[in-house]
Amino acid sequence: MGILPIIDESTAELTEIFEDLHAHPEIGFTEVRTAGIVAEKLRAYGVDEVHEGIAKTGVVGIIKGKGDGKQRIGLRADMDALPIDEQTNLAYSSKNPGVMHACGHDSHTTMLLGAAKHLAATRDFDGTAVVIFQPAEEGLGGARGMIAEGLFDRFPVDEVYGMHNYPDGQPGKFAICKGTAMAGASFFDIHVQGRGSHAAMPQASRDPVVIASALVGQIQSIVSRNVAPLDACVVSVTQIHSGSAYNIVPDTATLAGTIRYFKDEVIELAEARMQDLCDGFAKAYGVEITLDLRNIFDVLVNDDSLSDAYMEAAADIVGAENVSDDAQPATGSEDFADMLKVVPGAYCRVGHMGTMPLHNPGFVLGPELLPVGASIMARLVERRLPIGA
């Protein structure tokens, strides 16, 4: 079958949309311009209903098929960018200093717009397609925000699907991991309240830099000595902040980082051990240490049968030889997991040219992905809601 005709004819338009979104990235919950473009395009494509302002900047479109079927399929894309200075030198590189689409959400938005254009034009399905454009996926709780504001109460769906680009240099390769597919994640902040002094008289201090540094090392023992070897867990300290001068022992130090996991009992163990370490260090050094630990992402679990349905739709577009279910679980996280806790569905990844990793200032997305992803999502709706079934 290959790329769907309407989408194929719209490739230049989709590329233009993608490059415009890439050049004007917006951080989570501030995607005002992006959401405005999405709503404008959906209306221009003849989408039946367009709803804006869900979780601040979220947009939902409703597309009714030719029949009177009651089944409803959800397709979701995220819209937010990252706080990164772009270093690609692309002609359409970011015009917003310190903000970049380094994870491909600009392509996700574009592909779902392409799918919506096809579905609204052809209506070759019996039921309803719900296209969901979500804000703030990058750790800011956009999915939870939309759900809390009644996403699936106002726009109920029987199944929901998401897609992510994958910079593996293999354009058109579709991969999915059945079952547990992506890690859950917690973020943490640790505040060490010590006692400052002159750096030449450290005996008068309770040095938070020394304490925080020792704590970083001991936090690594959670994975190496507390979590069972066959249970995956990642604990990373990613920030250390303290001090203001060469000759001052500071009063405070802060640490921040993340925990990734696949089992509830693993995150419960890791969080308990981190609290024990903070309490123990506070007592040992005679300081106050506070731990702020919060869950940000749930574990993403793909439904087995709906993963099969996704692969069948992808095979129609890229060929069965380019479709696999052998993707390994990823320790990265994705807040589409929150939607999958409410509605069954599946999340896939599709390869494209370029091998610079996600979240890198030099990341470049291969635009050949745009009509491929759009066609897969549109075809999925047609397969799941066949006319005359």
Rank of each mutant, 00 (worst) to 15 (best):
residue 211 I to E: 03
residue 274 M to K: 11
residue 210 V to K: 05
residue 239 Q to F: 00
residue 229 P to I: 13
residue 256 A to P: 02
residue 225 R to C: 13
residue 224 S to C: 09
residue 271 E to P: 04
residue 236 S to H: 10
residue 269 L to Y: 00
residue 248 I to C: 06
residue 257 G to A: 01
residue 268 E to R: 12
residue 238 T to N: 03
residue 258 T to M: 03
residue 208 P to R: 02
residue 254 T to N: 08
residue 215 L to W: 06
residue 273 R to Y: 13
residue 243 G to F: 12
residue 263 K to L: 12
residue 262 F to D: 02
residue 252 T to H: 06
residue 242 S to R: 00
residue 264 D to S: 13
residue 224 S to W: 08
residue 241 H to D: 11
residue 253 A to R: 02
residue 239 Q to V: 13
residue 237 V to W: 01
residue 242 S to F: 05
residue 236 S to G: 07
residue 241 H to Y: 06
residue 262 F to W: 07
residue 250 P to W: 10
residue 212 A to R: 01
residue 258 T to H: 00
residue 210 V to H: 05
residue 240 I to R: 01
residue 267 I to L: 09
residue 223 V to E: 06
residue 247 N to K: 10
residue 210 V to L: 12
residue 231 D to W: 00
residue 261 Y to K: 07
residue 249 V to A: 04
residue 219 I to L: 15
residue 214 A to M: 09
residue 251 D to R: 12
residue 260 R to P: 00
residue 264 D to H: 05
residue 262 F to Y: 10
residue 216 V to M: 06
residue 257 G to H: 02
residue 260 R to S: 04
residue 233 C to W: 06
residue 221 S to A: 15
residue 256 A to E: 03
residue 249 V to Q: 05
residue 276 D to T: 14
residue 268 E to M: 10
residue 235 V to L: 15
residue 209 V to A: 06
residue 253 A to I: 03
residue 209 V to G: 04
residue 266 V to K: 07
residue 257 G to Y: 01
residue 252 T to Y: 00
residue 232 A to V: 12
residue 270 A to I: 12
residue 236 S to Y: 00
residue 246 Y to M: 11
residue 275 Q to L: 13
residue 223 V to T: 09
residue 223 V to Y: 09
residue 250 P to S: 06
residue 262 F to E: 02
residue 254 T to Y: 01
residue 214 A to R: 08
residue 223 V to N: 07
residue 266 V to F: 03
residue 209 V to W: 09
residue 271 E to S: 15
residue 210 V to W: 10
residue 225 R to L: 14
residue 256 A to F: 02
residue 214 A to Y: 04
residue 263 K to Y: 01
residue 236 S to D: 05
residue 250 P to M: 05
residue 232 A to N: 14
residue 211 I to G: 03
residue 228 A to P: 05
residue 242 S to I: 01
residue 244 S to D: 11
residue 244 S to G: 00
residue 265 E to Q: 11
residue 258 T to V: 08
residue 251 D to Q: 14
residue 241 H to T: 10
residue 261 Y to V: 08
residue 208 P to C: 05
residue 224 S to N: 09
residue 269 L to R: 05
residue 236 S to P: 03
residue 213 S to V: 09
residue 215 L to I: 06
residue 232 A to W: 01
residue 228 A to W: 00
residue 268 E to H: 10
residue 231 D to G: 06
residue 264 D to A: 14
residue 229 P to W: 10
residue 216 V to L: 07
residue 230 L to Q: 15
residue 256 A to V: 04
residue 240 I to F: 15
residue 243 G to T: 07
residue 231 D to F: 00
residue 209 V to S: 04
residue 251 D to C: 07
residue 223 V to I: 15
residue 240 I to K: 01
residue 251 D to K: 11
residue 250 P to C: 04
residue 270 A to C: 15
residue 230 L to V: 15
residue 264 D to C: 03
residue 252 T to M: 01
residue 252 T to N: 13
residue 277 L to W: 09
residue 248 I to P: 03
residue 243 G to A: 07
residue 209 V to K: 04
residue 225 R to M: 13
residue 277 L to M: 15
residue 248 I to T: 14
residue 213 S to E: 07
residue 259 I to R: 03
residue 249 V to Y: 05
residue 243 G to S: 07
residue 248 I to E: 09
residue 265 E to S: 13
residue 224 S to K: 08
residue 251 D to E: 14
